[in-house]
């Protein structure tokens, strides 16, 4: 017996078929299998006989007189398609069908449009989620890498209470930043991250302290950095660090 047949015998398709709980498609499938597979035919036959026996055993005596009534029912003429109906009836019937068919078609078209719009929206959402997920995975991998050093830049007298978290990975040459706390600054200012190398401040880029609270921000990485520093600079960033606005710092 092949895998498909075994799968069908183990599923509840045949049982549902006998209990009348199958779709038209499933019904057609069962009938096809019954025709082509002796195993399925035998399984169905056995199930049918068993259920038949159950129904026979659990019969309920019908009321007296019902047998006569049913036997006396008019079973003739043998039912054939009736031809005595007037043509008006058929005209009305056809018009009715057309109307119903038209409405159904219209309704279906609307439904199809709705579903198409929904499907597009869903696929966009999925693409967005996928890209978010990939980004998160990359960040997570970096944070968990053995050579990644988590560092906390602490607040200075200029901005006490500030705290910025940096994940620093020399082998990947990567730097991720997250703001725990930084004071708000005017709209024409920005925060900028610097690496101190041999007494000289080298820019690692600017960042928006609000959005960096909610997500990790990738910054530049430089070898031989001795400390990391955050300063307040004019919007767009500065070539030279304004040391008087040093807000957070950590030594490496």
């Amino acid at each position: 017996m092949n895998e498909e047949l075994r799968g069908i015998l183990e599923s509840d398709l045949l049982e549902r078929y006998l209990l009348g709980e199958v779709s038209e498609q499933e019904k057609a499938k069962v009938l096809e299998l019954r025709r082509t597979s002796p195993e399925i035919r035998q399984a169905l036959d056995e199930l049918e006989k068993t259920l038949e026996q159950v129904a026979l055993e659990e019969e309920i005596k019908s009321p007296p007189g019902l047998r006569d009534k049913i036997l006396r029912q008019d079973y003739n003429p043998a039912p054939k398609t009736t031809t005595s109906q007037s043509s008006y009836f058929w005209l009305a019937y056809a018009a009715g069908l057309l109307l119903i068919g038209g409405s159904v078609w219209f309704w279906q078209q609307q439904r199809i449009n709705e579903l198409e719009t929904q499907a597009t929206a869903y696929s966009e959402q999925i693409a967005q989620l996928e890209s978010d997920c990939q980004k998160t995975n990359r960040e997570l991998a970096l944070i968990n890498a053995p050579d990644t050093r988590p560092m906390i830049l602490k607040g200075t007298d200029y901005a006490p209470g500030s705290a910025v978290i940096v994940y620093w990975n020399p082998s990947e040459k990567a730097c991720l930043l997250r703001v725990a706390d930084l004071p708000d600054i005017p709209a024409d200012k920005t925060y900028q991250l610097w690496a101190d190398i041999d007494g000289e401040m080298n820019s690692l880029g600017t960042f928006d302290h609000q959005s960096a609270r909610d997500q990790l921000v990738a910054m530049a990485y430089l070898d031989h950095a001795e400390s990391l520093n955050v300063t307040v600079e004019p919007a767009g960033g500065n070539d030279h660090a304004t040391v008087s606005t040093l807000s957070a710092v950590v030594g490496i």
Binding site: E58, E59, K61, S62, L66, L71, Y75
Partner: peptide, 17 residues
């Protein structure tokens, strides 16, 4: 039509049940 009483006698009460 001879099948009607046969069906009733064999299956009528099972169907009725």
């Amino acid at each position: 039509q001879a099948c009607i009483p046969l069906i009733y006698d064999h299956y009528g009460d099972a169907l009725y049940g």
